[in-house]
Simulated assay, not measured.
Amino acid sequence: MAKKDKNLSFDFEGIYTKIENLSLIEYKLLDNRIGKVSFEKNENEVIITETFEPVIEDSESMQKEWCQTVIDNFKKYVEAF
């Protein structure tokens, strides 16, 4: 994964451990951290919640900001269709 301006990037590789159609994706990264993304329908919108084990090397707030940016960009992409 990389920012558009390429000033920050990291490898994000793992396996999906559980998938529930239209509601949940769970995964395990190569460094054994786990995470999940849930999708909850609420009237005319979908609420996306991601939880994950942060890496020790980076601040938790930086990692949260990164994930929020990814979700915000995904939202813009989906709303364009």
Rank of each mutant, 00 (worst) to 15 (best):
L30S: 04
K18I: 04
K36F: 09
L8Q: 11
Q63P: 00
S59V: 05
Q63I: 04
C67W: 15
M62K: 13
Q63W: 02
Y27R: 04
V55A: 05
W66C: 00
D31M: 04
F39M: 13
C67N: 07
C67L: 10
N44R: 08
N44I: 05
E79D: 07
N21P: 01
E65A: 10
Q63T: 02
M1Q: 10
A80S: 14
I34M: 11
L30E: 09
D11Y: 11
V37F: 05
T51G: 01
D58F: 15
Y16M: 11
F10Y: 10
K18W: 05
E43Q: 11
N7G: 03
F39Q: 11
N73M: 09
S61D: 12
N42T: 09
Y27V: 03
Y77N: 02
D31H: 04
S38C: 05
E50A: 06
Y16K: 13
I48A: 03
T69F: 10
N32P: 02
G35T: 11
V55G: 01
E26Q: 14
L24P: 01
K41W: 07
F12A: 06
S59A: 03
V78Q: 13
E65N: 08
D5S: 05
Q63S: 00
S61R: 08
K41S: 04
I19F: 08
Y77D: 02
N42Q: 13
